[in-house]
């Protein structure tokens, strides 16, 4: 069984890759693998913003990430540097996401069997 670390690059409303990452994570967990974290980098940090207002019948990566966290307690981390540059602060980041950084990501990478990017 493998330990996976996922890195996201896509935005919450317009990008299938966030959903693909969630589907991959779901399938990996069902097969008995572990996911150490899902790390949001570059524009993917926007998935953590707490003011998204997306119609319920449209693509919403954030809701898939939150569902995954609720069901499997997967750690959702985001790069603070990338976030600050895109207007996110501790006041508008959803509480289910952990503010983190590339340093933590680098550490997790050294412990992971596979790191998979979704972009």
């Amino acid at each position: 069984m493998a330990n996976y670390l996922l890195m996201l690059h896509g935005t919450p409303w317009s990008n299938q890759t966030v959903l693909s990452a969630c589907q991959f994570a779901q399938a990996a967990l069902e097969s008995g693998h572990t996911i150490s974290a899902i790390f949001l980098y570059q524009d993917a940090v926007l998935n953590a913003i707490n003011t998204l207002d997306i119609p319920s019948d449209e693509l919403n990566g954030q809701s898939h990430l939150l569902q995954l966290k609720n069901e499997h307690d997967i750690k959702l981390m985001l790069c603070v540097t990338a976030a600050e540059k895109r207007g996110l602060t501790d006041k508008n980041i959803h509480s289910e996401f952990t503010i983190s950084g590339l340093a933590e990501f680098a550490e997790l990478t050294t412990q992971a069997d596979k790191v998979i990017q979704f972009k």
Partner: peptide, 18 residues
């Protein structure tokens, strides 16, 4: 500035002596 964000990744791994 994708190149910059790629470099940031290299620098952090470098800082951790990878």
């Amino acid at each position: 500035l994708q190149g910059k964000e790629a470099l940031d990744l290299s620098l952090i791994f470098g800082a951790y002596e990878q």
